[in-house]
């Protein structure tokens, strides 16, 4: 391959997120002109916000080469805890939310301990938490739906600086994550750990602590996403959050995060990925695709995102293969 080809391949692979985003944006716009209205875009971002918050937490985990399948269940349990505390124990909304958030962090910490101290692979560890976590929620509610007071659901109508509250919270989470990942020593070291865990340890980086931290962050984000979601729905049933982990992983991976670790950003990556997922879901409705075909399309997109990630990794690796022979300078 000559230098130009290498450059083209590399540039395409490095910018798949923005390219896909533009393709989808323009594509749906052409198919359904109303799709690009400002109002519709606000609805899309608003609906995407809770998945986006989970996806930001997921991005941290993916950066270390891990995965967190438990986020949907953690979201459910946290929401249930909040609802039950308000309904049965007369907690104030703020206090209940605080406890619910702590519950999310606790589940994250559990994942962290199981993965870093017991050495259980993240996929299995968080799969167990996903199943057992949902079990905890079902046990607490006896699988009954939990309703939330109007004060909480009214929050969804609140606007901060003219922005819907849920979008505002999503933006805050993205901002905090980006500042952490880009500007702090720990954030940069997280990228180092994902790139080469062995070299990171050699460089004196406490990889274990950093990896553990990402699961706690992911748990916290899941709880927060649960709150945003209940403010919109006002009610939590037994299937709340089920399957959201896959949307979140797909959002992060579509946004350029690698399942192999070391690559990904909260902004712009995961934000774009999240909007993309939501855009496809909304777009399929807009262009009237059969309701029962939609999950197949979503599955296809997730597969495509993951395939692209693997393909990118293989190709970039090829470009960096080591030479044995003394190289010529041509």
């Amino acid at each position: 391959m000559n230098t130009l080809q290498v450059w083209v391949v590399r540039t395409l692979l490095k910018n798949t997120t923005i390219i896909l985003f533009l393709l989808l944006f323009v594509g749906f716009g052409l198919l359904a002109p109303n799709f690009l209205s400002l109002r519709n875009l606000e609805i899309i971002i608003s609906n995407a916000s809770y998945i986006g918050i989970i996806a930001v937490g997921m991005t941290f985990v993916l950066l270390t080469g891990g995965i967190d399948l438990s986020v949907g269940s953690v979201m459910y349990v946290s929401a249930v805890v909040v609802g039950l505390l308000i309904e049965n124990y007369d907690f104030s909304i703020a206090a209940a939310l605080m406890v619910g958030f702590l519950a999310g962090l606790a589940f994250g910490l559990f994942n962290a301990v199981v993965i870093t101290l017991l050495g259980i692979p993240p996929f299995i560890a968080t799969l167990v938490t996903m199943i057992a976590g949902r079990g905890v929620g079902l046990l607490l509610t006896r699988s009954a739906a939990v309703d939330f007071p109007d004060e909480l659901t009214m929050l969804s109508a609140v606007r901060v600086f003219g922005i819907q509250l849920n979008i505002f919270i999503f933006a805050l989470v993205v901002l905090a994550a980006t500042v952490f990942l880009m500007l702090t020593a720990s954030g940069r070291r997280l990228y180092a750990v994902g790139n080469d865990p062995e070299a990171a340890r050699k460089a004196g980086i406490n990889a274990t602590a950093l990896i553990a931290m990402t699961y706690v962050i992911s748990g916290g984000c899941a709880a927060l996403a649960g709150f945003v979601s209940i403010s919109q729905l006002g009610r939590v049933n037994a299937g709340f959050g089920m399957g959201d982990e896959f949307d979140a992983i797909a959002a992060a991976v579509l946004g350029g995060a690698s399942l192999f670790g070391g690559v990904g950003t909260a902004f712009p990556g995961t934000v774009l990925g999240t909007i993309m997922i939501q855009m496809v879901q909304a777009g399929l409705v807009f262009i009237r695709v059969d309701l029962y075909i939609q999950p197949i399309v979503m599955g296809g997109i997730i597969f495509f995102a993951v395939f692209l990630d693997s393909f990118r990794r293989v190709q970039l690796k090829k470009l960096e293969r080591r030479n044995i022979m003394r190289l010529s300078d041509s």
Partner: peptide
Amino acid sequence: LNLFTNLTIAENIFIEDFPRLGWLPFI
């Protein structure tokens, strides 16, 4: 080589001991 290919030159040089903004956690 023990470099992190996803980080910049400066970050690789100082990965073990980033210069901080005073007592803040920022680089």
